[in-house]
Every structure is written in structure tokens, then in C-alpha cells.
């Protein structure tokens, strides 16, 4: 990576981080929902899945925009790109699944199973660049940062500011989406009661 183009890294990687965070919340929320049956966990998982799909979409759009001038192609079926696409498809499937049944408990339980099983792919996406030979850059690890990863301190500072900004954006989107879900539940209850 070099020149101006490497700056895509400042939003491509934080968007991937926000997606990982979202899918970890889907995983935990799904476990909690299956254990307790409480609607709040289902709403948490559903909201996180939707936002995770948004961030993964951004990753899958910005990645090829970087790859076209650097690799000379938009897409390569290598481990990182393919597993990322599978992750996106899994959670799009999770969201589509929620519209299949009118019984919220049945839908919630089914979605929770997908939310738990789908998370298996998340570590595969993350470690794919280490486990298999791929074209995708490895990205900085704590060990590579200690040895000097090629990122100077201004670049590292910009990266961590960007990471913090995406994390805050994720938290705000989660709060907004959860309050929308609560409003939806309230309207549904009032409609049933009237």
C-alpha cells in the first residue's frame, strides 16, 4: 500500500472492526435470548445484525475500490474476500429470515440459532490472512506494531482516532436502532390491544 490510496485503510479497517463487534453482539444476544426468551436480547441481536450488515457492506465496497488500482482487479476469490462475502451473506440471510414467520417467538429462536452458528465464520474471516496464502494485506498486529509495521506515529494516531470514531458511530447507531425496535414493539402491542 502506498501513496494517497493507503488512506482507504482508515475507514476500511474500522468498518470491519465495527462489523466484528456487531456480530459478536449478535452472538451474545442470541445466546441470551435462547436462554431467557426475553425480547430485549432478540432486539439487541437483530439491531446489531442490521448494523453489522451495513458496516460489512462498506467493507465490501471500499475493499474493491482499493484493489482495482493496486491489484488491477476488483475482486479475487481469495480466503479473506470470500470469507467476508460469506459473512455478509450469512447475516443478510439472518435479516431475511426474520421476515419469514409472523410468530415473533419462532422467528426469534430461529434467528438466534443462525446468529450463533453464523459467528463461527467471524474468526475465520479475521485469521484467514494468517491461515491461508492471500493477496489481502495482513494489517498491523500487536507484535508487528512492536517491530515497526510500516505505520509511523501520525498514521497510527489517525488509525486509532478513526477506530474510536467508528466505534462511537456504531454505539450511536445501536442506540438509535434499539429505540426504533422498542417503538415498533409498542405500536404492535397497541394495535393488537385496540
Amino acid at each position: 500500500m502506498g501513496g494517497q490510496l493507503q488512506r482507504i485503510f482508515y475507514f476500511h479497517v474500522p468498518a470491519a472492526w465495527a462489523a466484528y463487534l456487531a456480530f459478536a453482539i449478535v452472538f451474545l444476544g442470541s445466546i441470551a435470548y435462547l436462554r431467557t426468551g426475553a425480547r430485549r436480547w432478540d432486539l439487541l441481536a437483530h439491531s446489531a445484525a442490521e448494523i453489522g450488515v451495513v458496516f460489512t457492506t462498506l467493507v465490501l465496497i471500499t475493499g474493491p475500490i482499493w484493489a482495482r488500482p493496486v491489484w488491477g482487479t476488483w475482486w479475487q476469490w481469495d480466503a479473506r474476500l470470500t470469507s467476508s462475502l460469506v459473512m455478509w451473506l450469512t447475516y443478510v440471510g439472518y435479516l431475511l429470515l426474520r421476515g419469514l414467520s409472523s410468530d415473533p417467538n419462532r422467528t426469534g429462536r430461529l434467528a438466534a440459532v443462525v446468529g450463533i452458528l453464523g459467528f463461527i465464520n467471524v474468526p475465520i474471516v479475521h485469521f484467514s490472512v494468517q491461515w491461508w496464502r492471500t493477496l489481502h494485506p495482513q494489517g498491523p498486529t500487536p507484535a508487528s506494531l512492536d517491530q515497526g509495521s510500516g505505520l509511523g506515529s501520525p498514521e497510527l494516531l489517525a488509525f486509532f482516532v478513526s477506530l474510536a470514531a467508528f466505534t462511537l458511530l456504531f454505539a450511536w447507531l445501536m442506540a438509535t436502532r434499539i429505540s426504533l425496535g422498542r417503538l415498533n414493539d409498542r405500536v404492535d402491542q397497541l394495535e393488537m390491544a385496540s
Partner: peptide, 24 residues
């Protein structure tokens, strides 16, 4: 040039987030 590709990627992020916020 690299700066054009960077601009396209930057725009894609804002448009993507904008579409999601609009849908919310």
C-alpha cells in the same frame, strides 16, 4: 489517480451510511 479512487471510496462510505440513516 489515487486521489480519485480515495474520493470514490470516501464517498461510498458516506453514501452508504446516509442511505442507512435515511432508512432509519
Amino acid at each position: 489517480s489515487d486521489i480519485v479512487w480515495l474520493f470514490i471510496a470516501f464517498l461510498a462510505v458516506w453514501v452508504g451510511l446516509g442511505i442507512y440513516l435515511f432508512s432509519l
